[in-house]
Amino acid sequence: MHSDTSRENLLSPGAHEIVVEGLSQRYHVYGSGPVCLAVPGGPGVVWESLRTPALEEFLTMVYVEPLGTGRSQRLPTHPHGYTRARYMRSLTGLLDRLSLSRVFLLGHSHGGFVAQYTAVHHPDRLRGLVLYESAPVTGPEQMAEASARVEEFVHRNQGRPGLPAALAGLQAVGTATDDEHITAALRALLPIYLAHYWEREEAFRELRETITCTYISSLDEDGKPDLIDDRATLPALTVPTLVIAGRYDVICGPRWAQELHELIPRSWLSLLEDSGHLGHLEEPKAFAAAVRTFVHSTPA
């Protein structure tokens, strides 16, 4: 763990820990090039699930462990209170500590919700935004779309011996209220998050056996739902934006990627044709190529 507070040391390879608003924030640095903060999904999914060595070839990747996740500190109201506004403050606090003015910000899934919220409120801090498997809304509309996509997944995989267990895992997510049960549910449902899990089972076996998740609720510190609807604010977004989604993603798939693309002025859209929710693992070359083209096309 690095303790020197100089910018150079805070961006040196490896694990780091800083304090923002009295809470310890952990992050991990790999690669070289322009700085890109990467925010994982869930909320609560372990940061290693988002690590992408192909991006580290041309970016200094700063993989964030969001508050409450992994070894970053938990809020006093844990598991509640992890609003996008709170996550945003920890991200901008990290940028302040790193003495960075404008960076790339990549958010995956729930991390995408946080990233687009940050871009709307602090566009001056960002050189570019990558919304990876994100959506402009949460709530009933998104759940209805996800249910329809799950039905398509079931149809494509009818007869697979592992299908019932995966569907049971998906159901269990809704009832989990601690780290152990949310992790077990995530591991069980992982095939649904991938385009062709059973055809590539050996390649994803280690991920399924080791991925972990912290239980974080969708409630704010007062116990109220932190619902998302960015349709009114995204048309005013000025940050150059790349939207990426997997063709087979059941959670934040092509419908939402297309809507984000239409809402955000001058945005780029990249659909990974052979991926689900984890295209950086399923099609790492195509994923990295899309990000590389976007980065190189974005003014310094």
Rank of each mutant, 00 (worst) to 15 (best):
A15T: 15
E202N: 15
R187G: 10
L272D: 14
R26M: 08
E209R: 12
A115R: 03
E202D: 15
S24V: 02
V64T: 13
V20Q: 02
A288H: 02
H28S: 10
H110C: 11
I18Y: 01
D220N: 10
L94T: 01
Q171L: 11
T83A: 07
R7P: 10
W256V: 08
E202L: 14
A172G: 04
I18V: 12
R125P: 06
V20S: 00
P299K: 05
G128S: 03
E180H: 06
V45Q: 10
L95G: 11
A236H: 06
T83I: 12
F294T: 11
G68P: 10
D220S: 05
H261K: 04
M88Y: 13
A38I: 15
H110A: 13
V45I: 15
E57L: 08
S134Y: 01
T175E: 13
T175N: 08
P53I: 12
T138P: 06
W198V: 09
T175D: 07
S6L: 04
E201M: 11
E21L: 08
P79A: 02
T69V: 12
G174I: 01
H296Y: 08
V64R: 02
H108L: 12
F113W: 07
L100R: 10
G42E: 13
E262M: 06
A146M: 15
D220A: 01
D96H: 11
L163T: 09
G223L: 02
P191H: 02
L260Q: 06
L126I: 08
A290W: 01
W256Q: 15
S275I: 03
A257I: 13
G107E: 07
V130Q: 07
L129C: 03
H2M: 15
A288T: 06
S12I: 14
A184P: 07
V120Q: 08
R86Q: 13
Y248P: 08
E141K: 04
T175S: 11
W268D: 14
N9A: 15
P13A: 14
G33H: 09
P254Y: 00
T298W: 01
R255G: 14
I182T: 09
E180M: 03
P164R: 03
L237C: 00
F294H: 09
A176C: 01
S297W: 02
G107D: 12
H78W: 00
T92C: 00
G68M: 02
A176E: 02
E283I: 03
R84I: 12
E282I: 04
T83F: 04
G81Y: 03
G162R: 06
E21I: 00
W256D: 14
S12A: 15
V150P: 06
A184L: 07
R292A: 09
A245N: 15
T118F: 03
H78T: 04
G162A: 11
P40V: 11
P79L: 00
Q258C: 13
M143F: 08
P43D: 04
F294P: 10
E56I: 10
T210S: 09
P136C: 07
V62S: 03
E8R: 06
L281I: 13
D96V: 13
L227A: 10
S267G: 08
S134W: 06
A188D: 12
R102S: 09
Q73Y: 02
T212R: 00
H80G: 03
